[in-house]
């Protein structure tokens, strides 16, 4: 990759965690709270990849991805600077949608989502995690119920039907993070959406 003429080192080398163990610990704790409490919105900090990557998506990649996690980039996120940045900072192989453990893009770019792994009956954990970049992320809109939610929660989802269909696959199905600027929320396959 270093010999690649399109590799812009000044951008690819920057934007990682300054203090990896501590930044990734804080980021994971926030991401875990989001996944454990669907609809909860947390702020992430400490990393920034090139455009169009948000801070929150950058930090999720730095925290969760490494050479063992194939990543799929969809739409505008499949750009040279983003590929270089992910390769340099995480070493994650960049792959097609079917092989991806993590898939990154806008909701429109990630379509159709039935390309992504949903796990197997014996290993439902072998399912993709989508990182969906959104323009806005607010605790309003779709109504969420299920594990992690005491009564009900609300989250501005890009659509409802796809997540209803995904929840019907339980215990199979993909899981999703939503990112907007520094903000992150999550929607595991267990959450019922209406």
């Amino acid at each position: 990759m270093m010999g690649d003429l399109t590799f812009d080192s000044s951008r690819a080398l920057e934007g990682g965690f300054a203090d990896v163990p501590v930044h990734s610990a804080h980021a994971f704790r926030a991401a875990m709270e989001c996944m454990a409490r669907p609809g909860r919105i947390e702020d992430l900090a400490g990393g920034q990849g090139p455009e169009p990557l948000s801070v929150a998506a950058s930090v999720l990649l730095l925290t969760l991805c490494d050479p063992e996690t194939p990543v799929h980039l969809a739409g505008d996120h499949d750009a040279g600077p983003v590929r270089d940045w992910i390769t340099f900072h995480t070493g994650a192989p960049l792959v097609g949608p079917e092989e991806a453990m993590f898939a990154l893009g806008t909701w429109a770019a990630l379509q159709p989502v039935d390309r992504f792994a949903i796990g197997t009956p014996e290993y439902p954990d072998r399912a993709a995690t989508l990182i969906v970049e959104t323009d806005r992320l607010e605790a309003e809109g779709a109504v969420l119920t299920g594990p992690g939610i005491r009564d009900q929660a609300a989250l501005s989802l890009p659509e409802v039907a796809a997540f209803q269909a995904n929840a019907r696959l339980f215990p199979l199905g993909f899981d999703a993070f939503f990112t907007s600027g520094a903000r992150v929320a999550a929607l595991p396959r267990t959450t019922k959406v209406r």
């Binding site: 969760l64 899981d175 595991p188």
Partner: peptide
């Protein structure tokens, strides 16, 4: 920090997230 190397922690963290997504599995 917290003894384990970062790659090990990432692997465990990914397992925790999937565990939360499929409760009891």
């Amino acid at each position: 920090f917290a003894y384990l190397d970062e790659q090990t922690k990432r692997m465990i963290r990914r397992a925790i997230l999937k565990g939360l997504a499929v409760p009891g599995y």
